[in-house]
Design a protein around this nucleic acid. Structure first.
Lengths: 338, 338
DNA sequence: GTGAAAGCGCTAACAT
DNA sequence: ATGTTAGCGCTTTCAC
């Protein structure tokens, strides 16, 4: 039972060098005679010495840990991003503290405070809006933050995302061309920035270019879940809409199945375009036509950007070319449209 | 721009007390005169002092952080468990470092070493087997480990799970009663403990009780993904099997859709029982009949158990009642069986 | 009820 | 190339 008791000092003594030297070889500092290095390395192996990251963090003020705030890990969209984040993080020797905010402002604030207390070197924030208190927390902290897979009300924060306005516009135009009747927009909250400033704008633009009137009643608000989409399917059908673009794949699947169960044929009587191309869109029958996004890359690029920010001195941060990174999106026609 | 520079010492000076006293009030130690406490609290608020968790971790040898090893966050089964874990963790003021092992032994070993270096107070391991080197890592470390949502080759480790053997047996019996022909078992690796010792045993028992012969060719190995299930659907149909119990919901959905696309009618010509009751099983058409598991609770209970282990002195650990926690499972008939 | 002081295990000047 | 010496910000005896 080898108690955790072999420290840098134990190694130093055993190898007959100073702890500074041990620290050097552990950290790959070139200023060590190969001979000494070998001796130290041998002792390290023999004693099975493992550097204590907490002590290292205290001394160096770097924890090689990043915080990731996610509304809900069980949402396939966010989970895919999280995978991309973790892959890149581990490539750069970072770990990620994953915290669910439950898409709740108070919880988000609380988890971020916790992350700051743990001295994370950076934060990746997923979620559609940032309450005022949290903005202050961010801006008064020196800890770099990047928003992944969304846009928020805070323009200061760098984001990695697709062009939501354009994507929405395309989807709506596509539907308008194929449908003889109103096209609905099914989103989260109308008031969140991503919807208010981007998706709803794209929606309006598409309508306008097609010479159609905007009707507020054709915008439906949901929580992002299959059950919610299923539940609202009746109301959406009743609105007279003959098609819908849906911002969450779970909701889109719920809408599809709800419609089908109520006897509305998709795509013959109602057409649907989903938004994220998660696996869900392939599993439903009919398969969902969808905007495609590089989900994994959205996460991976966010993490790459964050490492950059973490390694640039504060003064340079503003200069960093990449305030916002817009990744390409696409469109895949499947069976829920004609 | 308030630099992170207000420490316990700043507070002490400002409040005209010693840092020991500040530490006491921060940690809720009752040995502080209410008057002093108030004074300190006031200064803390005024200075917006936040304890540094890293320093605290070094001094106290407790990080209030647990490591969670997960094969793949994008698998709905594991993601649901992770949510349960995080909820309970945050309830107990713990954070979770989430690391993907990609179901790969070398990666798992590597991430666990990283977690140990970060001095996590405990580890929740998801995954079906533990390579020898990792077992040693675990057993030589004093860090409590619990296995969530599976069983492994390491009998020493406490697990939180359902009774896989019984669940499999039930599902197979159910299918045998309804099907005129062979019943297949679709699992991950035949060699993993969960399959070898539990599911395949349950499969054999069900066959035996029904007076049927065991045929190795009716066991199919897959990776846990929709695409894999889809790909193997042809081979499974060709085997002559008329039904299958599938251990991963994604695979079950792939099998279902693959069969359907190849013109095999489910449930009329082939029946399927899935295993985890993730949302996927509700999204497919026909909906998947499935074993039901309390996914969230599996995670939540694992974390609860871990907190117990983390707080019991080493000597008592063995005594802890709950070596293995077996949660109840159920069965839900839907449309993929008759 | 409160304070003084010794670490926790490491990094990072600064010497040599 | 290597060693010495301060801390990093906190917890925790041990005195008083």
């Amino acid at each position: 039972m080898e108690k955790q008791s072999v420290t840098i000092y134990t190694v130093a003594r055993e190898a007959r060098v100073s702890m500074a030297t041990v620290s050097r070889v552990v950290n790959g500092n070139p200023n060590v005679k190969p001979e000494t290095r070998k001796k130290v390395l041998d002792v390290i192996k023999q004693l099975n010495y493992r550097p204590n990251a907490v002590a290292r963090g205290l001394a160096s003020k770097k924890t090689t840990t990043v915080g990731v705030v996610i509304p809900d890990v069980t949402n396939a969209y966010f989970a895919e991003l999280a995978l991309g984040i973790d892959d890149i993080a581990s490539m750069y020797k970072y770990n990620m503290i994953l915290t669910n905010s439950d898409a709740d402002d108070r919880k988000a604030l609380q988890v971020v405070r916790g992350l700051m207390a743990k001295q994370v070197d950076g934060i990746i924030f997923m979620g559609h809006d940032i309450p005022e208190e949290l903005r202050q927390e961010f801006s008064s902290s020196n800890v770099p933050v990047v928003v992944a897979g969304s846009v928020t009300n805070d323009d200061e924060l760098p984001t990695v995302r697709i062009d939501y306005q354009e994507a929405t516009k395309q989807a709506i135009k596509y539907l308008i061309e194929r449908v003889d009747g109103p096209v609905a927009l099914v989103v989260g909250s109308k008031d969140s920035t991503i919807n208010k400033r981007y998706r709803i704008e794209g929606y309006k633009q598409a309508l306008q270019e097609a010479g159609k009137d905007f009707d507020e009643k054709l915008i439906f608000e949901t929580h992002d879940s299959y059950a919610e989409g299923y539940k609202q399917s009746q109301a959406i059908a009743d609105s007279g809409a003959k098609a819908a673009f849906v911002s969450d794949d779970g909701v889109a699947a719920g809408l599809l199945n709800g419609l089908t169960d109520h006897g509305v044929k998709v795509p013959d009587e109602f057409q649907i375009v989903a938004s994220n191309n998660t696996k869900t869109t392939e599993i439903t029958r009919p398969k969902l036509t969808t905007i495609t996004q590089p989900l994994y890359d959205l996460g991976a690029v966010s993490m790459r950007l964050l490492t950059k920010l973490m390694n640039s001195k504060d003064e340079d941060k503003e200069d960093d070319e990449s305030k916002d990174v817009i990744l390409e999106h696409g469109f895949e026609k499947r069976q829920s449209t004609r």
